[in-house]
Amino acid sequence: MSILVNKNTSVIVQGITGREGAFHTEAMMKAGTRVVAGVTPGKGGQTTLGVPVYDTVKEAAVHHHIDASIIFVPAPGAADAALEAAHAGVPLVVLITEGIPTMDMVKAVAEIKALGNVRLIGGNCPGLITPEECKLGIMPASVFKKGRVGLISRSGTVTYETAKALSDAGYGISTCIGIGGDPIIGTTFKDLLPMFNDDPETHAVVVCGEIGGSDEEDAAAYIKEHMKKPVVGFIGGRSAPKGKKMGHAGAIIMGNVGTPESKLAAFADADVPVAETIDEIVEYVRAKLG
């Protein structure tokens, strides 16, 4: 078991003929992902990497059962591509593209939420992986070993570091989701925690947050009320000055919102230990799981 994706997940790639799309499609296939088709408007009818390419997601859906779509479409068309997938009935849409205009995301997220039956992950995210079953993202699959810790994160490289450390320590990962570093994203920590709560193969969850916004505070509130499994926290950017954007568009402290103090207090209130280093994340997981 795992959450969101497994070895049976049928995947299409939007933007499969682009440089990024082609490169990562090949890597996903190598990692075991069942890629069944690609979509590039204007290139329908071709075959690439052994799968058919369609002009629209709707056409792909006529010929294939689709569980998920991953999007590598460049920023100007990325939100539109996510809406296309959502309206074609794809239940899981993973938006990798970075640099999407914020208003495009405001509109797309609102519309997708109104549809009600579609989960959007990202944008500007590394995607998700259920190790050794399905990689729906751009992470290096080699550092993820199958295991029992759920991992959710707002960052890319910190996720890989943490996954590697947990894998090397023998715990491994049930499913890992990079939710993305932008201010407006489709899925937040508190959306994913209930899924891990219900997944029998996830024994503990690591939440790698960072400064900016209030996702960590919302997650802590859920954990305090409902979480049945141990959770370990991490907050990146604790030393960052106020008002400066630290790489991620969402990693900025505005006034009193988004401060590390607020996030640490929220985690403390939910009895979630917060690691200061990646090694400490592993130590806290060991303390919880033995």
């Binding site: 910190v158 570091e161 790698c208």
Partner: peptide, 8 residues
């Protein structure tokens, strides 16, 4: 490399 790792 990566905003998260640099922040860390």
């Amino acid at each position: 490399n990566g905003a998260g790792l640099v922040m860390y």
